[in-house]
Simulated scan of single mutants.
Amino acid sequence: MTASAEPMPPTAQVRIDHESAVHLAATVARDTALRCGLDGASPDRAAAVASELASNLHKHARDGVCYVQPLPLGRGLEIAAVDRGPGMADLSRCLADGYTTTGTLGTGLGAVRRVATDFVVRSHVGHGTAASARIAAGAHTASAGVGSVCLPADGETACGDACAVRDTDAGRTGIVVDGLGHGEPAARAAHTALRTFDSTCALPLPEIMQALHRALRHTRGAAIGLLRLLPGRAEFCGVGNIRMCLVSADAPLQRQESRPGVVGWNLPTPQVRTTPVEAGRLVVLHSDGIEARWAHSPPPAMLRLPAELLPVALAHRHRRSRDDATALTLTVPR
């Protein structure tokens, strides 16, 4: 089982609206790498990757944002960049070392791909570009096929939302928590939920939910969604304002709502909904800080994004800035 007693810090968001923001993104990436326990040259590698991605946003894009966060699985960090720029008509050419459109040395995306443990990028002309560079403690990352974002409401430093993914013999299991309200009291509820999830994540989903309910009785409570992926099926158990969506570029998007209630205060009888799913499809869990309307008629370009990129794309385009916002994406195993 992959687990951690400490909750992940929330995602750091750096808007690239000025040249000085490039340096800020690099600083945030280096600091996050150190908080994630990376040593040696890794913090400097993280800073270099963030600098390159942020510099591209500053030079070529509009409404560009860098998101810096710990990996959803394993030790390491992720630096993601999303924009509403013109997009790249020839992505493979832009990834080649030495390619430049601005008269610079042209290290850019080719260097990012070389330095990062994993690098994923998608670009659509007229829609913009999304990229994720991950730097792991080892030669490989355990987070392939998993993506997340967890942002506090504007003006808050503590985040009342939280998410986690754990691998056990019972299957890959994810949780999204939305503590009631905002700020420190909501964050304490969310962190309590994650600690309980760490010790119960191999149990059946209803038993996990009941354990969470007991643990949250002395907090302000939370909305919680639990997701377990197994070959050929997805199991969902939710209470409150957490939604689940099955995403595919080739099939209609399927949505499931949680049951009304508050974990820790008034828990309905936990129910598991099992849905047949094909290998390779994405399943999204998100709090109500991500607008539900994103799933009504999403553009085809968004439906084609891999798990590593979909959460940050949702946050970039559909986040409610006055609320904590979390999205977690898992890929159905083969």
Rank of each mutant, 00 (worst) to 15 (best):
V149C: 10
D198W: 03
G174E: 00
E184I: 12
E52L: 13
A279T: 05
L305Y: 06
L205M: 05
T329A: 15
E78F: 06
G183M: 00
D324C: 06
V125E: 06
H296K: 04
L71M: 07
G37D: 07
A25V: 10
E52W: 11
T269R: 01
E257F: 00
A96E: 15
T104L: 15
M209I: 11
A189F: 01
R273N: 08
I224H: 09
L303H: 02
G110C: 14
H218L: 14
G37Y: 10
I16K: 13
A48R: 15
E257I: 03
I175T: 00
G174Y: 05
H318C: 01
R114S: 14
F197R: 09
E6L: 10
G147Y: 06
P206Q: 04
D118A: 06
I242R: 00
M88C: 05
D250H: 03
T100S: 15
M1E: 06
M1K: 07
E278Y: 12
R281M: 04
D39W: 08
D323H: 12
H60L: 15
I242E: 02
H286M: 06
T219Q: 14
R134D: 11
C201D: 07
R304H: 12
V120Q: 08
D154S: 13
A153T: 08
E235K: 02
A61W: 01
V65M: 09
L38R: 08
A327H: 07
G289M: 01
G261A: 10
L57K: 10
L229E: 05
R228A: 01
F197W: 05
A162K: 01
G40Y: 08
I135R: 04
I290W: 06
C245L: 12
D31C: 10
S20F: 15
A202H: 12
A3L: 13
N56T: 05
G106T: 05
G138A: 12
V112F: 06
R322C: 11
H23K: 15
P276I: 00
H127G: 05
V239A: 04
R113N: 14
P152V: 11
V283L: 14
A29V: 14
D161Y: 06
A234V: 02
T32F: 07
L38P: 15
C36Q: 14
T101A: 15
L330N: 04
S248C: 05
A116W: 09
P7V: 12
G110Q: 11
L285D: 10
L282S: 01
S4K: 07
V68Q: 03
L285K: 02
G240V: 07
G40R: 08
I135M: 14
T141N: 08
A223G: 12
A222I: 07
A133F: 08
P231S: 10
A279R: 11
P10D: 01
P185I: 08
H182C: 04
I135V: 14
D63A: 15
L95G: 01
R255I: 01
H191R: 12
W265P: 04
A307K: 07
T11Q: 01
R172S: 14
V272A: 08
D44K: 12
C245N: 10
T329S: 09
H286K: 03
E6W: 11
R188G: 00
T219K: 04
A223H: 04
G183D: 02
D97T: 14
H318R: 04
A21C: 12
